[in-house]
Design a protein around this nucleic acid. Structure first.
Lengths: 107, 107
DNA sequence: GCATTGCGTCAGTCACGACTTACGGTAAGT
DNA sequence: ACTTACCGTAAGTCGTGACTGACGCAATGC
């Protein structure tokens, strides 16, 4: 289940911040470490989790490693959430209709 | 930031299972506890987290407590993810166009 | 009134994850 | 070749969260 990994990855605040920075524009590890309060190895570990969740992808650039947004993780999360979306609307519709019936019956 | 609570809530596998059961149809705590491997107090604690994340809502029914789907949490998660959705498509489009240019230049 | 059912909460245990420092390895500059 | 920049991983610490059993409380049935 990929969606589980995505939610786990986005659950941590620091990791979300790193993900948002990467999503804004592709960045190197050192670049990310400068903009975050944690150490560089911590950033590497967070990127590992994000990469496993298919939220980011990495490419080598000389001695640097540039991380960019990977939409596969977003797709997985969106797909999982949309399974409940129709049902939520449906339930709301049912409740609304029931309320309308009660309203009519009360007169 | 509500989305953080939603992702944290959906990160745990047991909690996702409980959430899916509630989303399928409103259920009591004992009903949920019967369909899950953990104890009833654990289910209560999971429901607490899901409720704080606005993923489920509870209503009293005699001595029972019926939990149902709350779409506010889903909305928050969807809103957060969609911030990156346009960008992901944009980046993909740029990459595709760059590849197309390379293809043309190579001839 | 008393027992029962259904839940929430408290206290305690235990595993996991977030973080740091230290280390090793690769690519570029001089 | 030597240094420097950049990065991933290993080892260890520490806090947090997932879980259980015990307890207390409110609502229903007899």
């Amino acid at each position: 289940m990929l969606s589980g990994a995505v939610f786990t990855a986005l659950a941590d605040a620091t990791r979300r911040q790193i993900f948002e920075l990467v999503a804004a524009s592709p960045r190197s590890v050192a670049d990310l470490a400068d903009r975050v309060t944690v150490s560089r190895p911590a950033v590497s570990q967070h990127l590992r989790v994000l990469k496993d969740a298919r939220l980011v992808s990495d490419r080598a650039d000389g001695t640097r490693r540039v991380y960019a947004l990977d939409d596969r993780g977003l797709r997985a999360a969106r797909g999982y959430l949309e399974r409940f979306w129709d049902r939520a609307l449906h339930d709301f519709k049912q409740v609304a209709e029931a309320a309308a019936r009660d309203e009519r019956n009360r007169r």
